[in-house]
Design a protein around this nucleic acid. Sequence first.
RNA 1: GCCGGCGUAGCUCAGCGGUAGAGCAGCUGAUUCGUAAUCAGCAGGUCGCGGGUUCGAAUCCCAUCGCCGGCUCCA
Length: 642
Amino acid sequence: MNEIRISLKGEESQRFPSGITAGEALKGFIPSTDNPLVAARVDGNLVDLTHSLDHDCTIEAVGGSNEETLDILRHSTSHVMAQAVQSLYPEAKITIGPAIENGFYYDFDCPRPISVEDLPRIEAKMAEIIRQALPIQRRELDREEALRLFAERGEPYKVELLEELDSARVSLYEQGTWVDLCRGPHLPTTGDLKAFKLTGVAGAYWRGDERKPQLQRIYGTAFFSQQELDEHLRLLEEARKRDHRKLGRELDLFSISDEVGPGLVIYHPKGALLRFVLETFEKEAHLRRGYQMAIGPQLLKTDLWKQSGHFDHYRENMYFTEVEGQSYGIKPMNCLAHMLIYKSKIRSYRDLPLRLFEMGIVHRHERSGVLHGLTRVRQFTQDDAHILCTPEQLNDEIKSILDFALDMMHLFGFDYELEMSTRPAKSIGTDQDWDRATTALMNALRDRGFPYQICAGEGAFYGPKIDVKLKDALNRRWQCATIQCDFTLPDRFDLSYIGPDGEKHRPVMLHRVLLGSIERFLGVLIEHYAGAFPTWLAPVQAIVVTVTDRHIPHAEKVYRTLLEAGIRVENDTRNEKLSYKIREAQLQKVPYMLVVGNREVAADGISPRRRDGKDLGLMELPRFIDLIRQESAVTSSMLRAR
RNA sequence: GCCGGCGUAGCUCAGCGGUAGAGCAGCUGAUUCGUAAUCAGCAGGUCGCGGGUUCGAAUCCCAUCGCCGGCUCCA
């Protein structure tokens, strides 16, 4: 028998009989491995452990706990699920079933609706397939053969996929009598699946296109151990507990009522106060960074929206109304009024950059199925700004916006990722303008050395954009800040400034939001902090709790003093036991509970108890006021002039 | 907008053809209490809305509105 030489990264190369499988070869190098071993990389190519080796090569183990390994496990699990579904519902047609972040799915075209009630049955069938430990075998064949095979098996979606593949050879994966067109790799047998759970069902369009048939998707997840699966399910449970819709009601922050209309938020006093604190801080921060405030009207004549291009490109998302025979559009964006402010006088290059900031309320018609709590609504407030500057100033302006946005992320303790989105199919402006705008954004990212992803075709209709995707405490990603570069609107509105040469020049415009939609950001913040806002932001920073009715006069004095000191304080003088009031304040996640009883009356002080349960002991009011002020000072660096 | 599921008291839920139930919250009274729930009493719902089937509908059917999980879209 021939021998081949195989080398493993970091190890001496060894001789093996030709035809040995990648899995066996790896075991030759690493005799016992407690890490799950799921696949191998041979000369850089990902292959199954059952792949047989017939020439000298370098090999690498794919295993351990990382995304790549989990993806392979989950992909194999999705195949087992598809096999289970087809065995239970033979009329179901298979389509695709990839691993995704945190799990996998498989889409079926099935005349019989699949509901969550079917999941236990499918799971039981999967367990059966796993018990059988069927070998998962790769088979390579000509595309034409594969086409015939899937046509015979009555799988039109697989036929469609094959017809579009341009390679002559394709690979199938078989387990028992079940077969799927798949690139792989997969685990050696269905018995290698350890812990899985089906998590939900949903509708999904074939190839993500809403004009194509709607398929039934089943979501699931899988891990190498039950403990890891349990931990993942616990995290999902935690996310459910933090749901801002639930906390919003429990903390009495806001409500959404179908009497009012879907996607329209009613802020209750505490929610309104939260917004007041957040927005006041943000306005200050903008003033310190050289922005000027502006306020535009809610209604602007439709003619103006035609001029800007919104009527042609954004009409489906806009609301229109008629006033005295004149058509008006309710603003879905704040830029138009800012353009008119720019145009209201002749601008010199010395006036630039002009940075106009508006806490602008916008309305967008969102399709009913997409509304979701505060994170997707029909009326929302943007911390919006438009910067008009010379082309020479553009790079610095983008960099300072990036710095501003990232400072904000740090303030709230968010991690983030940056995305660069380029020209979409439906857009306005010249190629040259798009190139300039895209280059400007990329240069700023490059100058700052920030890593970013490119999202081709995801830009706004008027310009490319940089999006900041924040990552919350549960590692979920949210779209908040966006910076968009626009050469088109200044053109459409014929904006100009007089340059040092005495000639007219066209300014460039940046659209940007930092928190994005205040509504969405609030929703994200609620979940990020699980409702326990930091002291500077908490709508109620402290609550006075009396021990008995005798202590009410002192409590009132404390309450008034703190109120006058600018502290957001409440006074709970109800005839209830102290522990009852503490419990309530705790559930309301108030940062400080100020106990007032005999000792505090005698000492003319309070005994603060922190939200985390720590008793700070008796102290005088000025010291407590100082404490709150110190804790509220976290925003001060953001408020320094830059 | 599309697919699937769900709408019963302020909240969480039970009831699933025979005249609406619980816990918590609320109100009233008693209690005057030291760091996560004092006791008692009272009140609260045209069972999302509209049709239909039935002697009789919260319960079965249809339509509609809303919500939830996704898809598409997106701040």
